[in-house]
Structures are given as structure tokens and as C-alpha cells.
Design a protein around this nucleic acid. Structure first.
Lengths: 196, 196
DNA sequence: GTCTATACGATGATAGAC
DNA sequence: GTCTATCATCGTATAGAC
């Protein structure tokens, strides 16, 4: 990625996050980069191409982050705890990108939409497999895997909507709260331990 | 509300839900009503006025629904269970309106934005008081009231994003799943009973 | 790679007849 | 209350010079 392409992407992330995709114009992005709006089209084929690029890279980085973190963790409860922590951390540490990725899907044409949704489904399946395995092993209570995976993911994703960096709680404190809340919900009484 | 004003509102709800506020044009709404776009402006001062009207009425109905349902319920756990059930039911049964109310806040000017946010805060406070009371009574585990109230509300609100009427699960089944999940998360081990 | 200039369409909103 | 006609503006995107 060239320096200017990177500058444009960063400016677009800031503006899409602050004003929304539709409300942000190409000329605003250009102004934020100190170039003319026509110059954007040298780097991106269209405004939607720019949005798609942001979403695609974010989803790829998110899935990669989770996969790498789960590699060496054993035991279903520890794996789920780690997964929740990763999900929350990534969403709060990349608040703008993840906010865009989860709220601007309607800005995509069908072809691009399907590709991002496929990446999201692939990510969600990691959580669904964790829930299913935990249920089989009796660590988690029997449940509707799909509904609970949506619940867990949207719960943590929502953090990216209200989180204010430098606020009352740190990312790790919020992650810990969610982690305990979710594990308790999944166990529904099968309590063995709570993390420190 | 006149018949035509009602027709316009319903058409706008359908379109804002399906395509989003920015992507929906006044002429589309007019076409769906079988009138000319200029006629819309006899009933609403502007496109934003139409959006604000939808959001305002939805928030008022939501809060009223919760308040009426809590009136005769005693005991903190039962009150929280009822509150969660109401929240989920209202969001799934008024899926389009609640989706709009929680995703199109950016379409409002500052004045209108503040008014809707104030209504939302008032609604959230009902949940925050329930959590705080439950914690004081030792029914729920000590926790961060604000974070958990956001968690509970966004968790259930998210249902309005993926729910498909006539799908695999009924509204009441989904509400029951959320209810047990949330109560377990709030208790974190203080298990007394699970609802049937 | 970035610029100036412009094509072209769509939008929200208003004026005034009926 | 609804219509036709129109305004003013702004949007994305392209052409072609440098």
C-alpha cells in the first residue's frame, strides 16, 4: 500500500466513523488528505471500493488475531474466555474500523456485500464451534448455539459503539467484565471458577 | 394523526428499515404512498422531521410498554426478568421502528439528537436501577452497573438486526433464551432457580 | 500522481395553480 | 391536500493537461 493510499484510508476511516459512509463525501476525504477529490480516483476505483477495502482488511485482521490467539490455548472454558477477550480487545482497540465494518454493510453492492458477510460468517463459526464443544463436554449448559453466538458477538461488538478511549475503564477491565458475564451465562449454574 | 400522515410514516419505516435513512429519497416514499413528493411536505416539514417523528414515537411507546409491564411485578429477579422479556418482545415485534431508532441517530440535527438521546437515557435508567437494586440485595453479583446495562440492552436490541419473523424460533423462545442468559450473567453463581 | 474543469444525475425543498 | 413545475445544490465520477 502506497503512502497516499494509506493516508486516504485513514482519513476515510475517521470520517466514516464520525459521520457515516453516506454522509461523508469524497471531497471531504480529499480535503482531509490535502489533495483534490479527483486524485482519490487514482488510488480507488470508487467510493464503495474504498469502503470495501476498509471492511475487508478489518475482517481479515480480526479473524487472524483470533486464530493466532487461540493456537496455544487448551481447555474449552479457557478457549472461550480467550476468544471473548480477543473479540472485545480488537473491537475497542480498532474501534473506528470495527464500527464501520459492522454498521455500513448497506453501503456495499451485492457482490461485495456477500464477500464481507462470508468473512463474518467464517469468524462467527469459530465461536459457534466453541459453544458447541463446551456444551458437548458439559462445561456449558445446553443452548441454542446460533442465538447465543449472535448474543455474545453483538454484545461485545456493541462496545465499539459507546467506548470512549481514556474513559473511566480500560479495555482490559471492560474485557474482563464481559468475559465473566458471558461465561456465567453460558454455564447457567455449572460454576467451577471465576477469573481473578 | 391523519390517514395520509400515517400512510407516509408506515412507508418511511419500511424504506428506512430496508435501505437506510440516507439511501431513501423523498420521492421513493411518495411513490410508495401513491402521491407526489411535494405532497409529503404538507404533512412533514422535512425529511428529518419524518425521521424524528418515527424515533420519538417509538421511544415513547417502548418506555411506556416497559413501565406498564413493571407496575405489578414484585421481587427484583422477577422484575429484571420481566424487563428483559419486554425489551426483547418490543424490539422483535416492532423490529423496523426499533432498528431505525437505534441505527439512524446520525440523521438527526443536534437539537433532535439530544431529545432522542434523553429519551433513551431515561429508558436505560430503569434497567440501571434494577441492576443496582439487585446488587444491593445480594441477588445479583457486584458489578459495574453502566457497563452491564449497556450490555443487556444492546444484547437484546441486536435481535432487531438479525431477527426474521416466521423463522426457526418464536419471539417468546428468543426472549426466554436471553432472559436466562442475562439473569445467569447477573448472578454469576448466586443461583436460586432457572425459569421453566 | 496530482491538478483543473466539467459532465451528469439526483436530491431536498419551495412556489403557486387547482 | 394534492398537483405540476422548478430551483439550487451537491454528489460521484471522468477527461485531459501537466
Amino acid at each position: 500500500m502506497t503512502a497516499m493510499k494509506n493516508t486516504i484510508t485513514k482519513a476515510a476511516i475517521d470520517l466514516f466513523f464520525k459521520k457515516g459512509y453516506y454522509a461523508t463525501s469524497i471531497s471531504e476525504i480529499a480535503r482531509a488528505c490535502g489533495i483534490q477529490k479527483a486524485s482519490i480516483y487514482y488510488h480507488f476505483a470508487s467510493k464503495e471500493d474504498l469502503l470495501f477495502s476498509i471492511m475487508h482488511d478489518t475482517m481479515a485482521a480480526l479473524t487472524d488475531y483470533l486464530r493466532r490467539n487461540l493456537e496455544k490455548v487448551n481447555g474449552i472454558e479457557e478457549r472461550m474466555r480467550r476468544a471473548v477477550r480477543c473479540h472485545v480487545r480488537f473491537h475497542l482497540e480498532h474501534q473506528k474500523e470495527t464500527f464501520i465494518a459492522s454498521s455500513e454493510l448497506r453501503g456495499l453492492c451485492n457482490r461485495n456485500y456477500l464477500q464481507i458477510v462470508a468473512m463474518r460468517d467464517e469468524y462467527e463459526e469459530i465461536f459457534q464451534e466453541l459453544i458447541a464443544a463446551g456444551t458437548r463436554q458439559g462445561v456449558f449448559a445446553p443452548c441454542d448455539v446460533k442465538i447465543l453466538s449472535y448474543a455474545i458477538l453483538t454484545l461485545c461488538t456493541a462496545g465499539a459503539f459507546w467506548f470512549k478511549p481514556g474513559g473511566r475503564l480500560t479495555v482490559d477491565e471492560i474485557a474482563a467484565i464481559y468475559e465473566n458475564f458471558i461465561i456465567s451465562g453460558l454455564k447457567q449454574g455449572r460454576i467451577e471458577r471465576l477469573s481473578a
